[in-house]
């Protein structure tokens, strides 16, 4: 915490940006070298992949597929975050319920969820619902676990202090419980975000006719490495930017809420 406060000066921020730029440059360099080593048929060069990505982005068909993925991901994320928050608060506040469900959730978190996909397809059919359900299944568990832990870890003395400072139950929830749990809950949201994206894309890769996941599988079947790498680049860029924003927000929340 102290280190973060001290590093908030402009020069430190500039250095952090420089570090990021250097890391990206090193990764692109390594990619280029690997391209030279294995050839364009296995791994297209960064330039070729970028060109292909620009073409893809201008393609209306691609836009329709991206919109489908965005819709499925958006709904799955909402379910993960809101559902996970509600369940987490319930399991955290009620000790016995939490003790009963925690091992089940941890087990579910650990098993490869792709093995459950046939069940999901049977339940939800081949449309967008199955993708949403599969995305939410991936994302909701970390949100539940983080929220549950956050609620359980509220210091009893904070709740006692709220009473000693004459706070009403509503004011205690808003001004003590919420800020005390927010950083942990938000960390759950951040991990839930990444896993929901993973789940949604995997859902699209199997038994789907639309979406970025479907485009990826289609390109694999037609042996179009430039499209595969261009899509991977797009997904990596999206996930990295979103994750960095959430991480920055996460760090801020740990100071002030």
């Amino acid at each position: 915490m102290t280190a973060n406060v001290l590093s908030a000066s402009p020069s430190a921020a500039w250095r952090a940006h420089m570090d990021t730029a250097l890391l990206v440059a090193a990764l692109v360099g390594a990619w280029q070298l690997l391209h030279f080593a294995v050839g364009g048929d296995a791994l297209p060069s960064p330039l070729a992949a970028s060109r292909r990505l620009v073409h893809l982005l201008a393609d209306p068909d691609f836009a329709a597929n991206a919109a489908e993925t965005a819709r499925a991901f958006g709904y799955a994320l909402l379910i993960s975050w809101i559902g996970g928050l509600g369940l987490g608060v319930l399991l955290g506040a009620h000790r016995l319920t939490g003790d009963v469900f925690e091992p089940m959730l941890v087990t579910l978190y650990a098993i490869p969820k792709i093995t459950l996909y046939p069940v999901i397809l049977l339940l939800f059919g081949l449309g967008i619902s199955a993708k949403i359900a599969f995305g939410a299944l991936h994302g909701i568990i970390p949100v539940v676990l983080f929220t549950m832990t956050a609620v359980r870890n509220i210091h009893p003395v904070h709740l006692k202090s709220a009473r000693a400072l004459h706070l009403t139950p509503a004011a205690t929830a808003l001004h003590v419980i919420l800020p005390a749990t927010l950083p942990e809950v938000f960390s759950g949201f951040r991990i839930g975000f990444a896993l929901t994206l993973l789940g949604t894309l995997i859902g699209e890769m199997f038994a789907s006719q639309r979406g970025i996941g479907y485009l990826l599988v289609h390109a694999m079947q037609n042996n179009e490495p430039e499209i595969i790498v261009a899509l991977a680049l797009l997904l990596v860029a999206f996930a990295t930017i979103a994750s960095s924003l959430l991480l920055a927000l996460d760090r801020r929340l740990r100071h002030a809420a």
Binding site: H155, S161, A164, P179, A256
Partner: peptide
């Protein structure tokens, strides 16, 4: 059942709110 107005309590444990300055 409530802390009366005019009564202040300081506890043994650290009760400062870590999210506030």
């Amino acid at each position: 059942d409530r802390v009366p107005e005019g009564v202040g309590v300081v506890f043994q444990e650290d009760a400062s709110f870590h999210w506030l300055t």
